[in-house]
Amino acid sequence: MHWSNYLEPLARGAWVTIQFTLYSMFFGAICSFAFGIGKLSKNWILRGISIVYIEVFRGTSLLVQLFWLFFALPIAGDMIGIDLRLPPVTAGVIALSLNLGAYGAEVVRGAIEAVSPSQYEAARALNFSSLQTLWRIALPQAIPEMMPSFSNLAIGALKDTSLVSLITLTDLTFAAEQLRNFYQDSATVYTMVLLMYFGMALVLSMAMRLLELSVTRWRGTVR
């Protein structure tokens, strides 16, 4: 077989991988901010939930989380009489997002804590409420700090999507497995897959870099 014949099935797999990456980045970012801010909350219930979430999802592997959501949750649901079967796509996106969100939450928390105490004092002296301070003073200064870590997490998320092939999803890795089984041409197939992942990672990190530049514009003006 000529390598170009593999291109179409691999491209279809790559598209699934891209979608998974984008979805988990989107929902992962929401989790990151929600639980990262939650961990800094004065309310101990919010703080407690955030800490438990972060520790659980950082302390167990993504593979286990994925299998648990896809295989164990329906059984647990059965026992209490609720249908908790998730479509593989949903299980995949949830697991990836929650996993990413747990790491992202620590990035968000760290960046907010790194905002200088003098900024909080200035905000207090001007009578901003704590929510206004978070939103208008702390986050705009913290987000640029988060960007390099977020870029790393996004690349990690792209690579982690390969695990969804294990719950029958036809992503790039899954497509590669199928082609290899069928044509017994490991060298070509895996080289192409390698290059495709690398290409996607390159585009992703350039996109993150652009995002970073756009949120740090005011920093460029520091003498």
């Binding site: 003098s118 004092e121 200035a122 207090r124 002296a125 009578n127 003073i137 705009p140 200064q141 005011w218």
Partner: peptide, 21 residues
């Protein structure tokens, strides 16, 4: 405290301006 604070303003040694604005 928020009500009382409206009467006061402070100037800091290190300025403490908001750098992103």
């Amino acid at each position: 405290l928020r009500k009382m604070r409206t009467q006061l303003g402070m100037v800091f040694q290190q300025f403490n301006l908001f750098p992103h604005m």
